[in-house]
């Protein structure tokens, strides 16, 4: 059976279940489209990048962020309450001695309210199973070679707790504005599978 065929079969089933739920008053017309639009217009890694840049330029903010991320991100107009329930956010910062990387071994828990949809590899069994056993090897596959002396901490997200990594500020960026700094930060940097 081809992937296209599987897709058209499930597509028809989804439409059927939606229609059934509409007929039983459990779904309003247009509700699904509205939710999709809202989701796609929601979080993006630019939010995490903005938080990171602020932490790089403002040591006080960095301290508050690492102590109580849910409160600190409100200072930059962000919140973890955008999803089905407010989730606890813990932000961990990379240093010269320690690198952090995030996973959800049980499913796909991720700060969607903040970073938007997670990448497919984050949800894959391959990543979930291996990054806790061999983080250094997995990071190397992502092109991130860490010195042997760098300690790696792997944070396993759960239903109630989400994590985000603050990458290290790159050398030679002293003259950049906060906005320019934010532009350097990638989604993988915020998960911990890239340096920035």
């Amino acid at each position: 059976m081809s992937a296209d065929h599987t897709s058209s079969v499930i597509s028809a089933r989804v439409r059927h279940v939606e229609a059934l739920l509409e007929s039983r008053g459990l779904l309003d017309e247009g509700e699904i489209d509205g939710r999709i639009d809202e989701f796609l217009a929601g979080g993006t890694p630019a939010n995490g990048a903005r938080i990171t840049a602020r932490a790089w330029v403002d040591p006080g903010f960095r301290e508050r962020l690492l102590a109580d991320a849910n409160a600190a991100i409100r200072e930059v107009g962000l919140s973890m309450a955008g999803g089905l329930q407010e989730q606890r956010l813990k932000v961990v910062a990379n240093t010269a001695d320690e690198h952090n990387v995030v996973v959800c071994t049980l499913c796909s828990c991720y700060p969607i309210a903040l970073l938007g949809p997670s990448p497919g590899w984050y949800k894959s069994e391959a990543y979930r199973s291996r990054v806790v056993r061999d983080p250094r090897g997995v990071l190397r596959e992502f092109g991130l070679e860490l010195p042997e002396r760098t300690r790696i901490s792997v944070w396993d997200a759960s239903a109630e707790s989400r994590y985000m990594v603050v990458p290290r500020r790159p050398e030679g960026t002293e003259g950049l504005s906060e906005e320019q700094l934010a532009a350097l930060v990638t989604r993988k940097g915020l998960i911990g599978t890239a340096a920035v």
Binding site: F39, L40, V103, T105, L106, G116, P117, P119, G120, W121, S124, E125, A126, Y127, R128, S129, R130, V132, R133, V138, E141, F142, D156
Partner: peptide, 19 residues
Amino acid sequence: DVGGMAGFPAIAEEPDEPP
């Protein structure tokens, strides 16, 4: 509960992956 389990394929990244 796959944490630490062996036998899965390599991690595949998809460039410009849509949501």
